[in-house]
Design a protein around this nucleic acid. Structure first.
Length: 337
DNA sequence: GTTGAGCGTT
């Protein structure tokens, strides 16, 4: 039996209720009282699906936990990509592994790894001391964002969730240049149908010249929503991020700032140019916005938010240095919704 | 050729 922690809050947030300045929920621990890991595959909410919920599942389906890229800090500079990957194969199947390198090819001393299941991921996270090529390294869930580490919005203003029907498009970041539209369409069409039988991809847009991202439009906004909660996908050996593509706010109308479910303002324009190439057709349904009409949520650009699940104490490992405070003060230790 | 906290060339 699992207590139904946060469920009321979660559904309130989902319905667009004002989040205000409530940080207590965001900092609340879960999964600590019984010392068990959340291994029921139903995610952070831990809600049991009712036996007769087939008809109502559409309203609020349980979102299964999915593996995410884990960051590996303190990797020996001489560790090879092969050695890096094979080390984690002791914990299961590695679906993605990469040591970050300089353009010259030298290791930056950290990398990312994604396991094939959350169970395997938990095994990795449960290991406090990973020894790789004679060096102790640390594996963590990546930060969800840069900047604000306290989950506060810049303005502290109320949260307004725009109609979900507007967001049936996702931003796919961290793409490699070899990606093709057909590959994306096929991949995401399959994913869409796993969420909603009748769903499909209606559009794939890869800005040219290539800028490392694409937009995918679906028939159903639920698909976009669910994909963003998973948000870690490996396509052609590349780990890509998926976030909601949201209508970009007219900077002159900032009074009506929108916020997404992660507490980030929608339509936040990155400084200066970026979107909005001259001469490109403006097919945006939102006048005054960029040529795409959409933009990724700020702060999560290229770094998708984690879905809120945090490892129980048994899986949290050991901080590498004194700069790491208690787990509940870690940037990844936040309840997103 | 060295190093040792970090967060992924869009």
């Amino acid at each position: 039996m699992r207590p139904c922690r946060l469920s009321t809050r979660a559904s309130a947030v989902r319905k667009g209720v004002c989040l205000g300045s409530d940080v207590s929920v965001k900092r609340r621990k879960i999964g600590t009282s019984d010392g068990e890991s959340d291994s029921d595959g139903e995610g952070r909410v831990g809600r049991k699906r009712a036996a007769d919920s087939r008809e109502t599942a559409v309203a609020e389906p349980p979102v299964p936990r999915r593996p995410v890229d884990l960051i590996v800090l303190g990797v020996n500079y001489k560790t090879t990509d092969e050695g890096f990957k094979s080390y984690f194969e002791a914990f299961g199947t590695v679906v993605f592994a990469e040591i970050k390198r300089t353009p010259e090819g030298s290791s930056k001393g950290f990398g990312f790894v994604q396991m094939s299941t959350v169970e395997e991921q938990d095994k990795v996270l449960a290991t406090a001391n990973h020894m790789l090529d004679g060096r102790r390294c640390d594996v963590r869930i990546p930060d969800q964002r840069h900047g604000d580490a306290h989950g506060n919005t810049p303005s502290g203003s109320r949260v307004v969730v725009p109609p979900k029907t507007l967001v049936n498009k996702v931003f796919v970041g961290r793409l490699s240049e070899k990606i093709e539209e057909d590959t994306l369409r096929t991949f995401f069409d399959k994913e869409a149908k796993q969420i909603v039988d009748s769903a499909s991809v209606t559009d794939v847009f890869i800005p040219r010249p290539f800028r490392g991202f694409a937009f995918i439009t679906f028939t159903h906004s639920e698909v976009a929503d669910r994909l963003c909660k998973a948000n870690n996908f490996v396509i052609d050996g590349t780990s890509v991020s998926v976030t909601l593509a949201v209508p970009r706010e007219d900077p002159h109308q900032s009074a009506s700032a929108y916020f997404n479910d992660f507490g980030f303002p929608y339509g936040y324009a990155k400084g200066g140019a970026g979107f909005g190439g001259a001469g490109m057709p403006n097919n945006s349904p939102f006048p005054g916005r960029d040529v795409f009409g959409y933009s990724p949520p700020p702060g999560v650009y290229g770094r998708p938010p984690y879905d809120g699940w945090v490892p129980p104490p048994a899986l949290q490992g050991t901080p590498r240095s004194s700069r790491n405070g208690p787990a509940h003060e870690q940037p990844w230790y936040r309840i997103i919704r």
